[in-house]
Simulated scan of single mutants.
Amino acid sequence: MSGDDGDGEPPTVLLTGFPGFLGVALVDRLLERGDGPIACLVQPMYRALAERRAAELAGPDDDRIRLYEGDITEPGLGLENSLAELEPVEELYHLAAIYDLAVDPEPAEAVNVRGTEHVLDVAEELAVDRFQYVSTCYVSGRYDGVFTEAHLREGQPFNNHYERTKYEAEVAVQERLADGLPATIYRPAITVGDSETGETEKYDGPYYLLRMLRSQPSWLSVTTSLPGAAGSELNVVPRDFVIDAIDHLSAREDTTGEVYQLCDPAPLSVPAFVDAVADAIGHRVLSVPGSKSVTRRLLDVAAARGVPAEPATLDYLDHPTRYACPNTRRALAGTGIECPPFESYVDVLVEFVRENPEVDDEAMS
């Protein structure tokens, strides 16, 4: 059974971000390793979807997944009287956020910043033994140089409100960590579909490039090369690597108090990334030099005409930051968990896009 009216053992894990793309995969992994029962905080609008996902993961008559309707934007997560039922919770995973490069400031601050503060308050009220927080590498903003787990407050500018509010949220988590909250922070890079199946829930980020090229003739597809693109890296990781790493690291006591960047230690340059996508879809691609301002206006027009385009992604084609993950590499040494090179699974991503044209660029928050 899945629901907040179930009997049996009380939940020992609380997770936000279900039934989102990473949340579903992580709940599945936690069940495999015997954690739980797991209480999943679910917005009312996603209740039906959450029930379907819970039944798929645990079975219709299994109560290892308990759904609690609430909202991280509300104090106490909107749980009201249900919070008392969660007193046995020992571990809290916070994944819920707005993942949208073009998000407006108000919803980004409500969900990513104040929402994280509300989840932190609940973690302290429940006196959890572990707080597992999913941040992003892009708390770096447009930091000019190599950004590691040791970096955070560097006076960096930001590309958008998503980056800024995720930065502010991680600052809040690190402040609580410094005050004694037993927390671990994970910073995934740009996360795409599964490297084995290609599965994803939305086509955003690098998928805009893939879909834009596929919408053009295979004999000649055109894209823009921005000044500085040749020296910029596009750091992409598949979902299964992110989940494998969080699964392993979250189960270890010695990772408490640590920050882990889940990035590709050898990412492709932007031109090499475009070439890899072009090869996978079988298109001849011509990269035409252009300015960011002109290209942004062209993408605005293209998007208005229904072409898969998001002007906010342009900022990542001349991104000055390079990501290193020495802490993660030390912690995962000898485990067999490592980020595969993009070229090894780009064909799988492309095949999923071909077979699933109904997926779009929208997803739950």
Rank of each mutant, 00 (worst) to 15 (best):
L92R: 01
A303Q: 11
D194V: 14
A333C: 08
T73N: 00
A48N: 10
R354C: 06
E69T: 11
D240R: 05
G231W: 10
D318I: 07
V237H: 01
I337C: 00
V192Y: 01
L49H: 05
R252Y: 08
E117F: 07
L213G: 01
L26I: 12
G228W: 14
E310W: 02
G231A: 11
P271E: 10
D4H: 02
V359L: 14
A127I: 08
D5F: 06
P320L: 07
F273T: 04
D347A: 03
A183F: 08
G34R: 05
F18V: 01
D35S: 14
F158S: 12
G8I: 13
S218R: 07
R176T: 00
Y138F: 15
G115A: 10
E69A: 14
Y345V: 00
G334N: 06
N327G: 13
R296G: 06
V222Y: 09
S291L: 00
A58I: 05
L79G: 03
R176E: 10
E80K: 14
A55I: 07
Y138M: 10
R297G: 11
I337L: 09
D35W: 04
A304C: 13
R330P: 03
A110L: 15
Y99Q: 07
P10L: 10
G231I: 09
Y162K: 09
G3S: 04
D318K: 09
R53L: 06
V222Q: 08
P75T: 04
G23T: 00
A127R: 09
I38N: 02
V119S: 04
L77Y: 06
T321R: 09
I65D: 03
D247P: 03
N159H: 13
L83F: 04
S221V: 02
Q174K: 12
G3V: 05
V13R: 00
L181P: 04
V89D: 00
S293I: 14
L14A: 06
V139L: 13
P357R: 01
V348K: 00
F147E: 10
P19F: 06
E51Q: 15
P341K: 04
D264A: 11
E125F: 08
T224V: 15
Q43K: 07
E32A: 15
R214A: 15
G23D: 02
Y208P: 04
A303I: 06
D4I: 03
Y207V: 08
I190M: 13
L22S: 08
R187Y: 05
P271I: 11
V222G: 00
D347F: 06
L209P: 01
C325R: 02
L317T: 01
R214G: 01
E91A: 05
P217F: 02
S140W: 07
I246E: 04
M212N: 01
G141K: 03
D7W: 09
A169I: 07
L249F: 13
